[in-house]
Design a protein around this nucleic acid. Structure first.
Lengths: 246, 246
DNA sequence: CGAGGCATTGACTTGGTTCAAGAGGCGTGG
DNA sequence: CCACGCCTCTTGAACCAAGTCAATGCCTCG
């Protein structure tokens, strides 16, 4: 995966094409995209854009994880978005970055120069339609996060984050739900704290508490396994699901 | 305003047409919208939809204020959106409401039956384009709110809310910024608390503190005047100039 | 006048932060 | 190979901002 051929990957072979902004495109539309696209790689820890920077491209994350965050003048920072493979970065029609974008792991992006992309969008409703859908999904996710930030306890926040990562990880490599969920945390304690609106000490304490009580097991600092997913879900404070039970 | 003719208002005479989802529509497109639209009024305090309800319309707020909120099983609730005149409610392509929608004041909505609206959207890029733009704006607003919920102190939260309402109010009745800003709070203390991720007691205390220190003045419980807007902005914790959201 | 909603204020508790010390890993270079 | 510095993470103790519980004030409306 680190050896991706940056010079050119054919859209037809793209691993995340079916979920990305281009998922609805017909062959001729893909050809047009193919012409204006180029790949870029960012190393783990590298900043992709600072708030206020001129951004003359938009992009789809091909692999890796990036974060969007905002900072108050005195340095308090809040992560406001997590960009995963197939997610879209940048806003058509806007020149400046409005968030700090940082590569958490190594990130490969499929970039489109902004102007040509905007032109293309005007003529190909399939792109705009898909982008609308993705934006609506992100809005839902942001609002779910608002509930977490505003009303959940530290323990619930941690459990929620673990549940989300576990679920995404499971769906990504669709193992026909094996009994034990396992995954690596893609975030440092500090990044988790910035995401959850906590301090890194509180994150550490709550992770330890969940481990002590057997809700999760840790191998090293980052590798988590969840013996009983329902148990974890109980700790999130969320509805047990669609509504029945309780 | 309370005497709006519910039977029919011509789109051409609509007070919020230039900002709403239909703002880009040509005359013929407006005619099509005109055919599937109808007005509805909700009283202050009335619930417009509960999470999980089947919703067979989408709508534009014509006047009044509605809120979107989410609730955990034990009753903790977080407001996740404020719908103001010209804002859009509902998600094309989705049958169910995903939030509780409540009228805070009397609300007049311009409704479109969902199916016909979806069909129309497919054929009129102007509507989809505008909806995308509005959704992106809402996403930005939601993310700004995440920063507030995750990282601001109670005092900063209150100051931020007051600043937002003040600014919106000023822009709405574009008084060429007169020296003293004045407005009515459209929310109860409890609603403010639900918006800010606080308890109503804390809201009350912080409002009192800001009044005691002369940052704001109160006439009654709800009428606020701001003698020095910059002073208020200092209390928000934000960058001294940034600040978007309506 | 009394009832019922909102709002304020006080006294006390607590969850989470802050400050501080130290543990465990990992790469570099002597 | 070990020593060293650099990270990230954990843990403890003291503190404080905001929550909880409870009493009271102030409207408006019947």
């Amino acid at each position: 995966m680190h050896e991706i051929e940056l010079s050119h990957v054919d859209c037809a072979d793209c691993p995340i094409r079916h979920r990305a902004v281009c998922s609805r495109c017909e062959t001729d539309e893909l050809e047009q995209l193919e012409e204006i696209k180029y790949y870029r790689t960012f190393e783990a820890g590298q900043t992709i854009a600072w708030t206020g920077d001129k951004l003359d491209f938009v992009a789809t994350i091909v692999s890796g994880i990036a974060t969007l965050s905002q900072t108050l003048e005195d340095g308090r920072t809040q992560m406001v978005g997590l960009l995963l493979p197939s997610d879209f970065m940048g806003r058509p029609g806007r020149e400046m970055a409005t968030y700090d974008v940082t590569a958490t792991t190594e990130v490969v992006m499929c970039c489109f120069r902004r102007r040509p992309f905007e032109d293309l969008m005007r003529n190909t409703p399939h792109i705009a339609q898909r982008l609308l859908e993705m934006t609506l999904d992100e809005l839902d996710a942001a609002r779910e996060w608002m509930l977490l930030l505003g009303r959940k306890t530290a323990r619930e926040k941690i459990a929620s984050l673990l549940a989300i990562i576990a679920r995404r990880d499971a769906s990504l490599r669709h193992t026909g739900n094996s009994d034990v969920l396992e995954f690596d945390l893609p975030l440092t304690r500090e990044a988790m704290a910035d995401y959850l609106g906590l301090t890194l000490e509180t994150v550490s304490r709550q992770v330890s508490a969940l481990r002590r009580e057997g809700v999760i097991e840790l191998a090293g600092k980052r590798h988590v396994s969840v013996p009983d997913f329902d148990r974890l879900m109980l700790e999130t404070g969320d509805d047990t699901d669609g509504g029945f039970l309780v």
